[in-house]
Design a protein around this nucleic acid. Structure first.
Length: 612
RNA sequence: GCCACCGUAGCUCAGUCGGUAGAGCGGCUGACUUGUAAUCAGCAGGUCGGGGGUUCAAUUCCCUCCGGUGGCUCCA
């Protein structure tokens, strides 16, 4: 809805002739009102009854500011190029008139649907002319209907569904926090989540004001960590049997299958206008892969088929107030795998494998089942037919899980799980997730040929074994903070540490020897750097500790003569002596099986810039 | 998106009941030549988030926009 306010000495109008078929009855052909706030109103296509309420509130605000007690509502089509139809417009307009009256104003108005002549005199003070746009959120059907969904909540343990209110949470504090967050939305902590601070001090990522909110920039350390995480997940998924593809990041709004899928997906899109065309940015890799599968020739003998893409990025235009650090973004990196299977038994089989895959993937980021809470959600019908299957999922993680049962199928999936990380501000964020999708193969016309030579729609599993890569960094940082509060030193898993070994020469005449050590370590595929700055030893140690560097080794006369290194290990207590070869061996053991990338910075600290 | 709070040097923050600003860290220069969490001194950095208004005068008061954080709501 568009509003144009004119604080006027007077307005007068005369009705001329009908402009639309559906026009209001005329109560008076003309009127003149003095000293009045005139509001020209265009009702737009997306406006709802609720828009009228919001508009009335806005009018109230303006009227109070300029101390007006008379309001003139003037239907005026020419403020918008996206008008509502006449019927809708009259309804909403009437609602607006009613609300304005209810707010205690002397309300005047002119009839909708007529050409009118008018004279107006604007007072001309700074606030006398204002325009406002009142928008409704462009919610998808899925978003609008979500609160109408009838759901029941339980805590499942050992095959028993416990009432979520009556369950004894003793020993399960984290689950309790998660349940409260999930169901009641209550939370107590009012502070910036620790990962936001670390994201900056560790030079991982930063806000980019030159972009839209929720689109981050990554500094060399963050980019290295992100690359390693991405490489790791991709190799795990490929190892699981997926084939990697790459698909476009934007899609046509008018594509029929995409359009109906958009309606069922609970998220807001970025829209891209290009010339006459309207596109949306993908919010997952679903369509890209579905559109590939639609055109592929698939036999039942080749199923299950697994397609995978790591999206950089997936875009969701989340509400501005929702965005925080690495937890909630508008552009995020997400591994997204789709598995096409013949029937529900196969789907369950893959679901279970992917459940275990997810547990295993998170474990390598230092996140065990202790660190997150499991939610399993399904339709009542699925549960009635698969109670044992669900019970087994719970038993595998050896602690109670949150259950949500939908009385009817509303989403495109009938079963899903998520692993939710509960952070230091008692907020939860989903990491890994798998869904069994029963709708989209029909919607996208994806088929395979079965043994009887018939075309059949497969079932599709959606799987993100880790969740968004940014969320993994978030969870690692938040967990590090939890460790810190328990008295441990916060750190990254060694394989993700931007610098694994920091060499600190005591004096500049130890530099040459230090460089030799550095080369040895570097040649063993271990990220090593050297603090060659001319500052005190204590200060170098302090900064290395603040950078969470897992191995610090100081090199001076003693090391040169003994040919052993003195190592200060972050996860240990006392310093110890060790040969370079043994140190290399120890570290190699701890990082074997993980992806490796070289240092993404200058190895000489004196050559590094400060990013933040 | 709505509500609340915040935005001062590269960073963390102090300050101005309206008269254009300070500290620590960081940077630069110099001294020191150092053995496991901050060596010392000097110097250079600010259209006090943007725009508008009130005022003789605005970083300070008002409006508005932008950004951040928290809450609502929602999700990977």
């Amino acid at each position: 809805m568009r509003l144009l306010f004119i604080h006027s000495d007077f307005i007068e109008y005369n009705v001329r002739e009908k402009a639309t078929d559906i026009a209001e009855n005329i109560e008076s052909e003309s009127e003149r009102v003095e000293d009045v706030l005139v509001v020209f109103v265009s009702v737009e296509r997306n406006d709802k009854m609720n828009t009228a309420e919001n508009a009335a509130e806005e009018i109230d605000n303006v009227a109070k500011q300029i101390k007006a007690n008379k309001i003139f509502i003037y239907p005026y089509a020419h403020l918008s190029s996206d008008l509502a139809n006449s019927e809708q417009a009259i309804n909403i307009l009437n609602k607006l008139r009613k609300r304005v009256r209810e707010l205690g104003y002397e309300m005047h108005t002119s009839p909708f649907g007529w050409y009118k002549s008018f004279k107006i005199s604007c007072k001309g003070h700074p606030l006398s002319e204002l325009s406002k746009t009142i928008t409704e959120n462009e919610e998808t059907e899925a978003l609008r209907n979500e609160n109408k969904l009838k759901t029941s909540w339980y805590i499942l343990i050992d095959g028993i569904l416990n009432d979520v209110e009556k369950f004894d949470y003793t020993g399960y504090d984290n689950l309790k926090t998660f349940v409260e967050y999930e169901i009641k939305g209550t939370r107590a902590v009012q502070e910036t989540p620790p990962h936001v601070k670390y994201m900056k001090t560790l030079e991982i990522a930063g806000y980019e004001e030159g972009s839209d909110a929720g689109n981050l920039r990554y500094y060399p350390k963050g980019k290295l960590i992100k690359n390693l995480i991405e490489n790791y997940i991709t190799s795990r998924v490929l190892n699981y049997g997926a084939q990697e593809v790459e698909t476009p990041i934007m899609y046509d709004y008018n594509h029929p299958a995409l359009k109906s899928y958009l309606e069922r997906f609970p998220a807001r899109q970025y829209t891209v206008l290009s010339g006459e065309d309207r596109f949306f940015l993908r919010f997952s890799a679903c369509f890209g892969q579905f559109l590939i599968a639609k055109d592929a020739t698939i036999s039942y003998r080749q199923l299950p088929l697994k397609l995978y893409e790591l999206t950089r990025y997936s875009f969701r235009r989340e509400k501005h107030g929702e965005l925080v650090g690495l937890r909630r973004l508008r552009a995020f990196t997400m591994p997204d795998m789709h598995t096409f299977v013949t029937d529900m038994e196969n789907a369950k089989d893959e679901f279970l494998k992917q459940y275990m895959l997810s547990i295993d993937v998170l474990k390598d980021f230092g996140l065990s089942t202790e660190d997150y809470e499991v939610a399993i959600r399904f339709t009542r019908e699925f549960y009635e037919n698969n109670k044992e299957f669900i019970n087994d999922l719970q038993k595998m993680i050896k602690k109670p899980v949150l259950i949500q049962i939908w009385e009817e199928k509303f989403f495109y999936f009938i079963l899903k799980f998520e692993f939710n990380f509960v952070d230091n501000t008692k907020k939860a964020a989903a990491l890994s997730t798998v869904q069994i999708d029963v709708d989209n193969s029909k919607r996208f016309n994806i088929t395979y040929i079965n043994a009887r030579n018939e075309r059949v729609n497969p079932l599709i599993l959606h799987c993100s074994p880790s969740g968004a890569v940014e969320r993994i960094i978030y969870a690692i940082l938040e967990k590090a903070e939890k460790d810190k509060q328990k008295g441990m030193k916060p750190m990254f898993p060694i394989w993700l540490s931007p610098t694994m070994v920091r060499i600190i020469p005591v004096d500049k005449n130890h530099l040459e020897f230090s460089e030799k050590i550095m080369d040895k370590i570097k040649n063993s595929s271990i990220r090593v750097d050297i603090d060659d700055r001319e500052i005190s030893l204590s200060k170098k140690i302090r900064e290395a500790e603040m950078d969470w560097i897992p191995y610090i080794t100081v090199i001076g006369d003693k090391e040169i003569s003994s040919n052993k290194l003195t190592v200060r290990e972050r996860s240990g207590n006392a310093n110890y002596e060790i040969t370079v070869e043994d140190l290399i061996k120890n570290i190699r053991e701890r990082i074997s099986g993980f992806p490796y990338r070289d240092l993404n910075e200058n190895p000489y600290l004196s050559k590094r810039i400060i990013f933040s």
